[in-house]
Amino acid sequence: MTIGDARIRIPDRIAKGDLITVNAIVSHPMDTGFFRTAGGQPIPAYFIKDVVVTYGDEQVARFEWTSGVSKDPIVSFTLRADTEAPLTMVWTDSKGGVYKQSVNVAFAAA
């Protein structure tokens, strides 16, 4: 995976009103700024600092992160699946990189 590659996983079958678990991962070094290369060069801080979660038109969550979150950050959280709509996550890093991924929340036929 290259920096910014992201995946969001939700259940295959969702019924309206389900409380679903959302698992997300984004590829990122999450450098703290405290490490050096083997050659002794400092590695500057470089990390995801902001994650915005949008469901349909509504911002449902926002996460503020520091370089204390592990490399290739994962996060899992729940969502009340009330409507068929895209679930979008946007990760922004400390150098202004913006990475976006979406999945479609759709209800299984009864």
Binding site: T32, V60, R62, G68, S70, S76, F77
Partner: peptide, 16 residues
């Protein structure tokens, strides 16, 4: 930062 749409507080992550 959460809203009612999240339905429940159940967050998992990995930290340093």
């Amino acid at each position: 930062h959460l809203t009612p749409a999240i339905g429940q507080v159940a967050i998992q992550s990995r930290i340093k």
